[in-house]
Design a protein around this nucleic acid. Sequence first.
DNA 1: ATACTAGTTGAGCGTTCGTTGAAATACAAC
DNA 2: GTTGTATTTCAACGAACGCTCAACTAGTAT
Lengths: 226, 226
Amino acid sequence: MENDEALADKNSHPTRERILDAAEALFARDGFAAVSVRQIMRKADADVSLAYYHFKSKRDLFNAVMLRRVDHLNRIRLEALEQVEKRHPDDLPTVEEIIDAFTSPLFDLLSSEHEEWRHYFALIAQINNSTEWGGELMSRYFDPLVQRFLEALRRAMPGCDEADLYWSYEFLSGALTLAFAETGRIDNLSGGVCKSSDMPAITARMPRFIAAGFRALCERKNEAQD
Amino acid sequence: MENDEALADKNSHPTRERILDAAEALFARDGFAAVSVRQIMRKADADVSLAYYHFKSKRDLFNAVMLRRVDHLNRIRLEALEQVEKRHPDDLPTVEEIIDAFTSPLFDLLSSEHEEWRHYFALIAQINNSTEWGGELMSRYFDPLVQRFLEALRRAMPGCDEADLYWSYEFLSGALTLAFAETGRIDNLSGGVCKSSDMPAITARMPRFIAAGFRALCERKNEAQD
DNA sequence: ATACTAGTTGAGCGTTCGTTGAAATACAAC
DNA sequence: GTTGTATTTCAACGAACGCTCAACTAGTAT
């Protein structure tokens, strides 16, 4: 918040993208309200008023930061699901395979050299857990894709109760966003045994954990419904 | 952010508590940085400088908001765990029972008339998913209690891998905080089938979902460990 | 009544906020 | 070169920020 970080190379990218990169990194670390436009432009190595020339306002800049990545994210996740379904021309994909198609594209983005996505996922975690923006923004960006995945899950678990399915997704969403936020909490709790940034460790565990949860809730039969 | 909400009855509570209540509600809705001290004191119906008399700074006020509830929270959760263990003088509690002891005290707080806790949980959700504060603050407040629960889980799942256990808790933590944040996301996604504020619906589902996840990760045997 | 402390008030310090407008530059097409 | 458009610079607006200080009131004890 106080120290100016390494500022962007002025000739490496066009100004508009440098602003988006700087805003993404700062919003992700400190949140929308805690970051000033001046701070962003200092990091982007450009004049303050350029933020209002390329984007109309601070809020619109925030939206632009979000929209730059959300389309690509939705596309590769949809492709992963279609890939899984193509692998099952006759039978149906399992719950594990569907959850894996939902999560593994994110792992791929973080395992690669693209540091940029790390900031984006930290930002998503903040928004998802925000009372003021969470419900509306996350729905606007991701609900169509999520509905597509829920449809696949309904087929994998026929007769599944609708409320059970939606709540299961809520639990998945919470676990996923926190794990990707890399807050360092697990580093402290485990005394260094686990590291927030250890993506392979998450890849190996989350689909199994989440799929078991879905099964326990949505596949239960002949039981009282609270 | 713009409209001043119903301000507190000046004679109902002492000033110090009115400030804490107002700060809690506003921090929970808009986040630490988005709320000004003036805004808080307007809602508390008290002069700005009283915030700096009763608390030293905005940041210290925030800490006071947190500390007011965290002790009570840790105490009733510990009691719930001890209650479960007392119910098993000879054998061990099941994973479901331990998870239930971890979560059901929260449900009780929200199911009762105490609207105040609702704000607090929304605040916790923000902090837990914050890159800058999440790791440190959450550990400081909750790690001793969490360690106590993890110990019980180790006994319930002997031979459990340590990393599996810590990651399982990370998933639990994410699912729990999002569900309690009541962001309204599930209302949108489900088209009204589910409601964020429906605590009985969560009570009936979360322990089962989470316990199944723990079991799937920590009870697996004779498998490759990536 | 006096003295002491806890609590409250209102004015205002210096700084930063989001945002804007006019002037300057860059770079293309004619 | 001239025109035109896209981008950049610089200075500044009013408003709000976190915070402080000296004065004032309320209550309690001597």
